[in-house]
Design a protein around this nucleic acid. Structure first.
Lengths: 138, 138, 138, 138
DNA sequence: GTGGTCTAGACCACA
DNA sequence: GTGGTCTAGACCACG
């Protein structure tokens, strides 16, 4: 799971986390019963206060998305079905449209835009792989 | 231009307006030189305080998207993009990363993601062209 | 840094603050990275509403002069001048023209005017140096 | 007399006019009994609403600086002595300092700054001469 | 009519 | 404690 925070959006960080984790859960990127990253390391990784992550988790718990077992960690609850394909498509289109609009607003030509997308996909892929390798080693 | 506010999203109202107006500008729904809705009526329509709309507009002005002529109104600027290339790139990357992360969360495979991007670029292009044609007729 | 407001000048309070803080930054009275007075106490000290100070600070942020870290405070930015050369020139010309016009109004002859400029540049330079020395000692 | 308006300063235009005319009067650039430019042409020249100029003049009248003779125009009143040299110097220094501070803020080097000053003095001189020639022809 | 400023006071998010 | 958002309402400046 990749979590990405936008510090400047004005949207509360803990809500950004909630949204992204809900999405990951709903999409199946997070499987029922699977453990979420624990608060302290995640807070460090995201360069965010621990309270902020804790708040996101407690919000998720009260939403019934996750379950907190004190002393053991946070786990995804069972009763979540993956979203229907159409809904997922809609969620993704929202983000894509924002990027396209931004590109147009900044007058970035189409080919540069596409090139940038490929670049970022590679960058983020590498990041993710690095993360996973790091965890295997630990 | 249709403006719509989500009071529960946690995202500040004025930022929602900023985003939507930037989008409208980028998509061609608003044309350079065109007047934006005036602050007071818009505030009433959206059932929001006048200051909140004013803040959105003032933000847009300092971003260089609109121009406000006191006593006359607010207008979309002509050349709204005097940002340095580096900064533009950074802004765009932010949006792109969000889309990529969303795609990953939703476990949309790479080729489907790219296909969707092309689709949406075409769709938005068509929309923009339609808008322009409509205005020419008027 | 001393901030002083003229309630009768007709110039908006928040702009007076913006100007004075820009001046303090330019003169070295405020150093890059240094914290500005926090909004609430400053508002009390100046007997001004909190929002007014906040508006000044937010203006300074969008001008790229300061950086505000919510929950922590506002700080003078390091490299406050990413403006394009052309824009900078225009901003400077505005100020220069005002001085020239004032000189003409006061019928100060050209050579006296230029002499006065040199004098003031030296005076302000000295002030800035004094400020820097003082801070090194602290 | 040169009148120079800054539309972006936030200071009311009519107050800018009042200040500049007071200064011109105090310095002797405007002589007692001399006629001020009439409202309509001045408003056009400055690209300002007639009401704004009218307001400035009415303000000046209530301050006792000028006298309005309906149907004939506005004239500088008699009882104004030129300011003492020291005061004039102080007024001028204020403007000069603002320009210097702006230059420093924009990191314009000293020699460029001085060069720009000479440039602008020439430009404004030419403007003034053009104005005067134009009036002689009329 | 337009936008701009300021106040007073409430509540939120974050460290 | 910090800054941020929002509301409600008053008054000003300008066209």
């Amino acid at each position: 799971m990749i979590l990405q925070i936008n510090f400047k959006s004005g949207m509360p960080i803990y809500l950004q986390l909630v949204d992204q984790i809900k999405t990951a859960a709903a999409s199946g990127a997070l499987r029922p019963g699977e453990a979420l990253p624990s608060i302290r390391p995640l807070a460090e990784e995201l360069r965010v206060n621990r309270n902020t992550v804790a708040k996101a988790y407690s919000e998720l718990e009260s939403l019934g998305v996750i379950e907190t077992l004190p002393g053991r960690g946070c786990f995804l609850k069972e009763n979540h079905s993956a979203l229907r394909k159409e809904v997922r498509r809609k969620l993704l289109i929202e983000e894509i449209d924002q990027a396209i609009v931004q590109a147009h607003h900044l007058q970035v030509p189409r080919h540069e835009f596409l090139q940038l997308i490929h670049e970022r996909m590679d960058v983020l892929d590498d990041k993710r792989r690095a993360n996973e390798d790091h965890k295997k080693e630990v």
